[in-house]
Amino acid sequence: NITNLCPFDEVFNATRFASVYAWNRKRISNCVADYSVLYNLAPFFTFKCYGVSPTKLNDLCFTNVYADSFVIRGDEVRQIAPGQTGNIADYNYKLPDDFTGCVIAWNSNKLDSKVSGNYNYLYRLFRKSNLKPFERDISTEIYQAGNKPCNGVAGFNCYFPLRSYSFRPTYGVGHQPYRVVVLSFELLHAPATVCGPKKST
């Protein structure tokens, strides 16, 4: 009989979030998941669920729940959905087409922007091929755009693959930082360890 609440607040209220290319994953298990708490945590810009209804979450049980978190800019949030393409979905964080879970995003301009520009958040701009779903690539190998090998040196047709967002508070919403948490629900042929409040007794 599990009584402890799932530590969603640790994920959502973390002081620092990860850069999207090096997104963070927390496995959540053996706890009571009260998803209604999430609705009250922040004024969400996005709370979209796929393959599951957000209002039914509190009635369900899962084997595992994974919470992935990272920062992107406002106009990239739409890429965090099944079947999307674009720089983020292709080279940084890719959801599977049959994704079961929820994408939660909110504006973090007050936390993640600086007047002089916050350069701490990076994204991958160049990659030889698209990522597979939930693949994480943290390599910093020089990207070869031409025929000549780069031998690890940046220059003509040889690019450092990561680029930094420079978040400034005066930017338009599309270029402001957004914190994203992706909850993916895993149903294996194994005992369910993460249940809503109704199912945990």
Rank of each mutant, 00 (worst) to 15 (best):
I2H: 06
I2N: 11
N4A: 06
N4D: 09
N4V: 06
P7R: 00
D9P: 13
E10R: 11
T15H: 08
A18E: 12
A18Q: 13
A18P: 06
Y21F: 14
A22E: 02
A22D: 00
R27D: 11
R27S: 10
S29C: 14
S29M: 11
S29Q: 03
N30D: 11
V32E: 13
V32S: 09
D34N: 12
Y39F: 04
Y39C: 07
N40S: 09
N40K: 05
L41S: 06
L41P: 02
L41W: 05
A42P: 02
A42K: 04
A42H: 08
F44C: 06
F44D: 06
F45L: 05
T46N: 09
T46Q: 04
T46V: 00
K48Q: 08
Y50W: 10
P54K: 09
P54I: 08
P54V: 09
P54Y: 12
T55C: 10
T55Y: 03
K56S: 10
K56V: 13
K56M: 08
N58A: 05
N58R: 06
D59T: 00
D59S: 01
L60K: 03
L60F: 06
L60H: 11
F62T: 04
T63V: 06
T63Y: 06
Y66L: 05
A67C: 11
R78A: 14
Q79E: 13
Q84A: 08
N87C: 04
D90K: 08
Y91F: 06
T100N: 12
T100R: 01
I104M: 12
A105S: 04
N109M: 11
N109G: 15
N109Q: 11
N109S: 15
N109F: 15
K110C: 15
K110V: 12
K110T: 05
L111E: 10
L111W: 05
L111S: 15
V115A: 15
V115D: 15
V115G: 15
S116R: 15
G117T: 15
N118E: 14
N118G: 15
Y119R: 07
N120A: 04
N120F: 07
N120V: 14
L125W: 01
L125Q: 00
L125F: 02
L125N: 08
F126L: 04
F126A: 00
F126Q: 04
K128P: 12
K128F: 14
K128S: 04
K128Q: 08
S129Y: 12
N130E: 05
N130F: 11
K132S: 07
F134N: 13
R136K: 09
I138T: 02
I138Q: 12
I138N: 00
T140I: 11
I142L: 01
Y143H: 07
Q144S: 12
Q144K: 11
A145K: 06
N147K: 05
N147M: 03
N147Q: 05
K148E: 02
K148M: 06
P149R: 06
P149G: 09
N151K: 01
N151P: 14
N151A: 13
V153K: 06
A154M: 03
G155N: 12
G155K: 06
F156N: 07
F160I: 04
F160A: 06
F160E: 06
R163A: 07
S164H: 05
S164F: 14
S166N: 13
P169K: 15
P169G: 15
P169R: 15
P169Q: 15
T170R: 15
T170N: 14
G174F: 14
G174Y: 02
G174N: 10
G174M: 02
G174L: 00
Y178F: 01
Y178C: 13
S184I: 14
S184A: 10
E186G: 11
E186N: 02
L187W: 03
L187E: 09
L188D: 07
L188A: 10
L188E: 02
L188T: 05
H189D: 06
H189G: 02
H189S: 04
A190L: 04
A190P: 01
P191Y: 09
T193D: 02
V194S: 04
V194G: 06
V194F: 07
G196Y: 08
G196V: 06
P197L: 02
P197C: 06
P197S: 11
P197A: 09
K199G: 05
K199T: 01
S200F: 06
